[in-house]
Nucleic acid binder design. Structure first.
Lengths: 340, 340
DNA sequence: GGCCAAATTGACAACGCTGTCACATGTTGA
DNA sequence: TCAACATGTGACAGCGTTGTCAATTTGGCC
């Protein structure tokens, strides 16, 4: 299509191609009048620079790569949406590259990605944001990258955080305030550092309320509906039965609701259930799920901004960037046995 | 990174860069011995061709663009997964580009995409696969593209179909066979041609069973949970109450379940509910939702194969490609009042 | 051995942009 | 009025491939 090249524009504007290039790239030191002439030439010719040539000569792709290992589809979509928002504004494109967190091939894969890369930098989402060997590979290759919601607080100049721990503590305190004392907790997939943070938050919350952490009320899940079901069974069948269950993510929470339903336990009258993530279906459950909402899209936007800044060599003041997760009160929580 | 270029490989192998290029691109007419020498040089130097240079010289990107207007997130993810599957195998990358189906900017946006494109071809998913002005723009620009699951049966050499209509007819007949006669239907978003197909299938099914289409049992929805709720209200409050409801997608079906639950109607004893799509949450509902499953990922894979074939100039025999949607029987359907 | 077609290989010019650096043109201050 | 310096602009060499086309080698056959 694009038969019209920079040369044509230059001719029409009566300048050299270099000047056209300058206008294109918003470089300084172009006289206003010249700029105008070039711009009008561009407009009348409907010129668009050839991205391949740009990339070859300038050695940059105007493309951001998104690396992730399939958490829930709604999470991925939100991340994509946020990243695309910023990319579009800045005339970048988004290449997606899901990968297997567990795979031993990951380092090799990333190596290839880096060498052969069509991207200028990477966005990493959990659990990849905490994948040590991946991070090392990226650092060694001097690659640009930004981490979204990592579980540790390292590399604060290339990370966007959220307060997993604090919000979980708050949620736990909220359950206590409702009159619950036997509060079950379903831990998430140990491969995700954020899950450990959430568990810590739960313990913080109990501690703050002067309640002990009872291991009989803590079960290990794996972020899936099925594991939520299993943990709920284990938890609800034992002598010490919780009156509230806090699952580390919504899918597991829904598993708990499923079990409660089968066991003819009413929610929230007989059992309160809360989750984390605020997946769309949570609002459509009967009853709607009380949960914690991460500002996923906003985090992705911030991360992308950070990455593009990095690409442009902007020096980022080393201040921690944290977007707050907030509790969404809905219908699955109610007064516990110790209320009033 | 990639300081090693084709020249280095050529020197090491004692051939010209052109020969290296030939090996790289699997061109014919290279002697076996030569090929081996080149390949070993590539291996020892860990050479990877520079994608920008390739793209500039060869005028192709080795990138596929995915165009979609946000249907459900699980649908998008499945499409992406399928497309990526094939892309990875063929050493292509995937650029995602969600767009607003309704927007009047779409043609302009696509124009820009085409002119400035970093992709070799496009994958279109519903409802974009039926967007006339978009299709026209693509055709006029001589762009490569393939449509996934379009509602019409045009352009069969660049489309991958599924049997929306037939599967809906089958589902309707199934409900009749269970003893239902008053079967409600919630029509989907009129902007999606596939939705019209599903409605036709419903009518076909009734007709085949010798039942009339009663407009009081047909409501217009918009593919959202909320619209499912509204339609269910309208349907269940009227004198002629259906004993089964067929929603054009799962989200609306879940809306129906919600309303039934609130109205203390038991599913499936008092009301059977079925949907379409088989979204993940459907299996986790109480009861699990009977629905129709489209082979989304497989369709995306097939479409991507088709597109890459097109890019390589493969002539595709003009035979209709159709992947079957199949009914998933679960717990939300049961005998109707006229059974036995 | 000689001849022809087919197979194999190479030289070199694109591809369309950005970076470098030299040069031209203005601008300021004494 | 003229250095001295800042600002604008252009010529041209890459960037690392692929495409074209001509040159060379090979193999088959008499």
């Amino acid at each position: 299509m694009s038969k019209v090249s920079i040369t044509d524009v230059a001719e029409r504007a009566g300048v050299s191609i270099k000047t056209v290039s300058r206008v294109l790239n918003r470089e300084p030191n172009v006289r206003g009048a010249t700029r105008d002439r070039v711009e009008s030439a561009i407009a009348t010719l409907k010129y668009t620079p050839n991205p391949f040539a740009r990339s070859l000569a300038g050695n940059r792709a105007f493309v951001v790569g998104l690396l992730y290992d399939n958490p829930s589809s709604s999470y991925v979509i939100d991340i994509q949406r946020g990243a695309l928002n910023v990319c579009r504004r800045e005339h970048y494109d988004l290449l997606i590259h899901p990968c297997d967190f567990q795979s031993s091939e990951l380092p090799a894969e990333v190596g290839h990605l880096l060498r052969n890369s069509k991207v200028d930098g990477f966005l990493l989402t959990p659990p990849l944001s905490d994948h040590e060997s991946l991070l090392t590979a990226l650092r060694d290759a001097n690659a640009h990258f930004v981490r979204v919601a990592p579980g540790d607080h390292a590399e604060i100049d290339r990370s966007v955080f959220t307060n997993d721990r604090e919000s979980c503590a708050e949620m736990t305190r909220y359950l206590v305030s409702l009159g619950h004392e036997a509060i079950g907790f379903i831990v998430g997939d140990p491969a995700h550092k954020a899950m450990a943070e959430r568990y810590r938050g739960y313990k913080d919350g109990l501690k703050a309320a002067g309640l002990p952490v009872d291991q009989r009320l803590v079960k290990q899940g794996f972020n899936t509906f099925g594991s939520g079901v299993e943990c709920a069974h284990a938890m609800l069948r034992q002598p010490l039965r919780p009156t509230a269950v806090f699952a580390s993510n919504d899918e597991m929470a829904i598993g708990v609701m499923r079990v409660a339903h089968q066991a003819a336990l009413r929610i929230p009258e007989d059992l309160s259930v809360v989750g984390f993530d605020d997946i769309p279906i949570g609002q459509q459950m009967f009853p709607a799920l009380t949960t914690i909402r991460q500002p996923v899209e906003a985090m992705a936007m911030t991360a992308t901004d950070l990455l593009l800044g990095q690409l442009r060599g902007v020096i980022h003041t080393s201040k921690l960037i944290l977007l707050e997760s907030v509790i969404q009160l809905r219908e699955s929580t109610g007064p516990g046995p110790h209320s009033r």
